[in-house]
């Protein structure tokens, strides 16, 4: 154990530079807004029917290479604490209510990010009797991150986009 701690002090961290934001919601990052509001958003994740592949990559965001927390983005246990609802999978009929309730439990302002090809329109499960559709068949979606599964870098880019627009809209509101 001591060896590991010592190594941690002496070696450079594995964490890599964060990618820059891009995508359909990108806005100019307002420096003053950053200074005033900080960059911190809480994410609640709901799997609405995924194959668990997308979850694995969301999990990977926490590993030392990506270390999502350093960007002010962290996962929370309750929707009541969340700014962002991150949803994976096609929405199954069996999960529709739980997804809706998670969304309703979040305070405004709130954003919804759908992750993975399934979350767009059901993906390869579209047309099944058990599938309600993509995430926006149940709740409004602000940003979609495509891929099967999207890589951690793809997910990070998407989140930074939301972070920027969230910061901008908070600044505009204050």
């Amino acid at each position: 154990m001591r060896k590991f701690l010592l190594e941690g002090l002496l070696k450079r961290p594995l964490t890599e530079d964060a990618p820059t934001a891009e995508g359909n919601l990108a806005t100019e990052i307002d420096r003053t807004a950053h200074r005033r509001l900080g960059r911190s958003l809480a994410i609640r994740m709901v799997d609405a029917g995924s194959c668990n592949g997308c979850e694995l990559e969301i999990h990977a965001l926490g590993n030392p290479y990506y270390d999502l927390d350093r960007l002010g983005l962290h996962f929370v246990a309750s929707p009541r604490h969340a700014d962002i609802l991150m949803v994976t999978g096609p929405v199954t009929h069996n999960m529709k209510t739980a997804l809706r309730r998670s969304y309703d439990a979040m305070p405004a302002p709130k954003w919804v990010v759908s992750v993975g090809d399934c979350a767009l329109d059901g993906g390869c499960f579209r047309g099944s009797y058990a599938i309600a559709g993509g995430v926006d068949a149940v709740i409004p979606v602000d940003l979609h991150i495509p891929g099967c599964a999207p890589s951690p870098v793809d997910i990070m880019k998407g989140l930074l986009t939301i972070l920027d627009s969230a910061t901008a809209s908070r600044a505009a509101g204050s």
Binding site: D47, G49, S50, C51, N52, G53, C54, E55, L56, G89, P90, T92, N94, M95, A98, C124, F125, G127, S128, Y129, A130, I131, C148, A149
Partner: peptide, 27 residues
């Protein structure tokens, strides 16, 4: 809760489509 009806989608599918579904049963 995450029942997607994969075996239903399989019925009548071509072999490559079946492979796509099989690869998404458990990521």
């Amino acid at each position: 809760y995450v029942h997607k009806g994969i075996e239903g989608l399989m019925q009548g599918a071509e072999i490559p489509r079946g492979a796509e579904l099989a690869a998404r049963v458990s990521g």
